[in-house]
């Protein structure tokens, strides 16, 4: 599974980082880094939750 960020929408609300810090990191300058290019299966439900709860709806996941 891959994660795609719309950087034009992301405003560093950091909800994703709160749900899944293994994958999402909001940097000092409020940009978002995806830490794993391929997300392991055991994190799937957390990723889905992060995508769903992003306040700006800036995340997508692709298989």
């Amino acid at each position: 599974m891959k994660i795609i960020v719309d950087t034009d929408l992301c405003e560093a609300n950091a909800v994703c980082m709160g749900i899944c810090p293994e994958v999402f990191r909001v940097e000092e300058d409020d940009t978002l880094t995806i830490l794993l290019q391929e997300v392991p299966e055991n994190l799937r439900s957390q990723i889905e939750q992060a995508v769903r709860l992003c306040p700006r709806q800036a995340l997508r996941s692709e298989n």
Partner: peptide, 11 residues
Amino acid sequence: FGVGEHFCMGA
């Protein structure tokens, strides 16, 4: 706070 494009900036 709404969601998406117009999500409240002051949330």
